[in-house]
């Protein structure tokens, strides 16, 4: 009991203590020690996200010799906007949001992605009561006409953009579904809503699906995968060109190198890679996402 009270008191006081220097510091600091602000769009387990980024921030701080800060953002559009106005220096974007961000910030570069992002997939899942069975050819997506479908978030590459693209490849438009297409706002909600039978079909990130199945969080009697999409490029790090002004021309290269230097054989670094669900980070470039950009334009997500 005493401990609870004490920690409560502490948690009341700590932020007070922490705030004081913070408010005065930003003004009299010179550019060299201004922190590199990183962020990520919300797509993953939030707790994990928090742990992930504080670890990564520590790692980058030692590698790069500049202070690194993590700012949480919970909205895709807000993350892109904050990147545009220069409040975020380096963001872990999804495929589509990365393109949106780079189009709004001339000179922004995609620098690194996970090994799995070069070969990323979405899955279509269906409630077993719907009577839908696995399909093995994209043309068979036409069997989904007249069913109800939910995506994840509007800006999600794996939970919306690419699934919609493949549907259109099979000549299935959003109007062909029963009622309005849903946007569950997250991959986990998509699983739950399809499992409940509210929507007969859902589309989501394969990585999330696999990890939920592994955790045993999915009732496989209720919901099953009916199709795995072809591969596409997804998540990647995007850096704002402002950092070159602040830390020097070669800084972007150093960040890229630091990310790729994460070594699965070093325990602490493996932890970071594990949290990202990656074996290692690999180089990437803007042109890898031209397909996404084209699809984004076709679907209307990029103006």
């Amino acid at each position: 009991m005493k401990r609870v009270v004490l920690s409560t008191l502490l948690s009341l006081l700590l932020p007070l203590a922490a705030c004081t220097p913070d408010s005065s510091s930003s003004s009299n600091e010179d550019a060299a020690t201004q922190p590199l602000v990183t962020s990520a769009i919300p797509d993953q387990d939030p707790e994990k996200l928090q742990r992930l980024y504080s670890k990564l921030a520590d790692y980058l701080e030692t590698e790069l010799g500049v202070p690194v800060e993590y700012k949480p953002v919970t909205d895709y559009a807000a993350a892109v906007t904050a990147f545009r106005v220069g409040d975020l220096d380096m963001v872990w974007f999804g495929g589509l949001t990365g393109v949106q961000a780079r189009l709004q910030v001339p000179g922004a570069e995609a620098i690194a992605q996970r090994d799995i992002d070069a070969d990323f997939h979405s899955v279509f899942i269906a409630n077993t009561n719907s009577g839908l069975t696995p399909i093995d050819d994209i043309a068979q997506l036409a069997t989904l006409k007249g069913r109800s479908l939910t995506f994840g978030s509007e800006s999600s590459t794996s939970g919306r953009l690419m699934p919609q693209y493949f549907l259109e490849q099979a000549d299935v438009n959003l109007d062909d579904f029963k009622g309005e297409v849903g946007f569950s706002q997250s991959h986990d909600a998509t699983i739950q809503l399809v499992e409940a039978g509210t929507y007969e079909v859902g589309a989501l990130n394969e990585q999330v699906w696999n990890s939920r199945v592994q955790e045993g969080a999915v009732d496989l009697d209720q919901v099953q995968v009916i199709w795995r999409t072809p591969a596409y490029y997804d998540y990647h790090w995007v850096v704002n060109p402002d950092v070159k002004e602040r830390y020097g021309e070669e800084f972007v290269g150093r960040v890229q190198a630091a990310l790729m230097a994460l070594d699965p054989s070093v325990p602490e670094e493996k932890e970071i890679l594990d949290l990202f669900g990656a074996n290692q980070f690999i180089e990437t470039e803007n042109s890898n996402y031209s397909q996404i950009e084209d699809i984004g334009r076709a679907i209307g997500k990029i103006q």
């Binding site: 919300p42 387990d45 919970t74 909600a189």
Partner: peptide, 21 residues
Amino acid sequence: LGIIGAGGLGYQILLSLQSLR
């Protein structure tokens, strides 16, 4: 208003909602 970026119940609620905790 979860987007406020500096914590708060809204932010935590949105995070917990995303993974349905």
